[in-house]
């Protein structure tokens, strides 16, 4: 058994909050640059150029790419051979507080959804814990902006709705979102499980590298079809028209009940942020 002191997570989470907000991973950058090359519509080309210029400026000036530095979604994968000593949740929240303070990131969390007083330090994190094989601890911080989060939807489809029902629902979510979630967007889809698990799958789908398709050809094909149909809608970057409405579509799925087909669609903006460290 490997003993891992929870307090070690604080500095790691702090660093990842700052890194994720300032620099995008290579897959996101490559994807948007490829989309720029393929984009035939002049106004859309102009918007994509500004978006790329903004990534470069944030990198160069070490400042947040987007002012909505999000709620900190923190995913911790704990190897089964690891024993965590101490308060993991407290250590993660201390890391968020430190990172958002030292990184000059915006504090965007209110302590209560109706009484709405800002907590002042961007805590608490949205913490997700999974147990995995091995003796490592993997931490991913994915700051999530709410322009796109607010445009996400979940529907309990009927089994008879099938693939076509899923496609129709996903397209309707993207259509209703229009320019609001800062297209080009990343579309995370969670299928199956229960009401809550579908939403979690959709969020986790947003963590997949944009250049990686689902390993199952059935789902990989569905992802490709959805991307094509979304980009035929014509919404375009910022909603000003064009081909590049979405950068990528990722589906995650779980077994489900004989009576159900839960379908969650979690949208992300083009500032598709996440940073990971393996400890």
């Amino acid at each position: 058994m490997r003993i891992f002191n929870a307090t070690e997570l604080t500095d790691v989470v702090s660093r990842l909050c700052i890194e994720a907000n300032r620099s995008l991973t290579g897959d996101v950058r490559n994807c948007i640059e490829t989309c720029r090359q393929c984009e035939p519509w002049p106004i859309a080309q102009g918007v994509l150029d500004r978006i790329i210029e903004n990534y470069n400026l944030a990198d160069q000036n070490q400042m947040p790419i987007c002012q909505d530095t999000g709620v900190a979604c923190v995913f911790v994968e704990i190897g089964r051979e690891v024993y965590i000593e101490g308060d993991l949740e407290a250590a993660v929240n201390a890391g968020v507080k430190k990172g958002y303070d030292e990184g000059y990131l915006r504090k965007s969390v209110v302590g209560d959804p109706l009484q709405r007083k800002n907590t002042g330090d961007n805590t608490p994190a949205m913490l997700y814990i999974d147990f995995v094989p091995g003796d490592k601890v993997t931490v991913t911080v994915a700051p999530k902006g709410f322009g796109s989060e607010n445009m996400s939807q979940l529907r309990m489809l009927r089994p008879s709705d099938g693939v076509e029902g899923v496609v129709d629902f996903v397209l309707s979510v993207v259509e209703q979102a229009g320019p609001n979630p800062c297209p080009p967007i990343v579309v995370g889809i969670g299928l199956g499980g229960t009401f809550d698990k579908a939403a979690l799958l959709a969020k986790k789908a947003l963590l997949r590298p944009l250049d990686t398709a689902h390993p199952d050809p059935f789902y990989a094909e569905l992802e490709a079809r959805l991307l094509k149909e979304i980009n035929a809608l014509g919404i375009g970057p910022q909603g000003f028209g064009g081909q590049t409405t979405a950068l990528s579509v990722a589906i995650e799925h779980l077994p489900t009940h004989i009576a159900g087909l839960p379908c969650a669609v979690n949208l992300n903006c083009h500032v598709a942020r996440h940073a990971t460290e393996v400890l």
Binding site: N54, C66, D68
Partner: peptide, 30 residues
Amino acid sequence: GKGQRGVEVVEAMKRNGSVYFGAIGGAGAL
């Protein structure tokens, strides 16, 4: 801002000769 506006806002804009500008969403550093 960015994104769609409701009918009441557009009517009030027309009534008052006002304009809704879009800035590029996500281009915060720029």
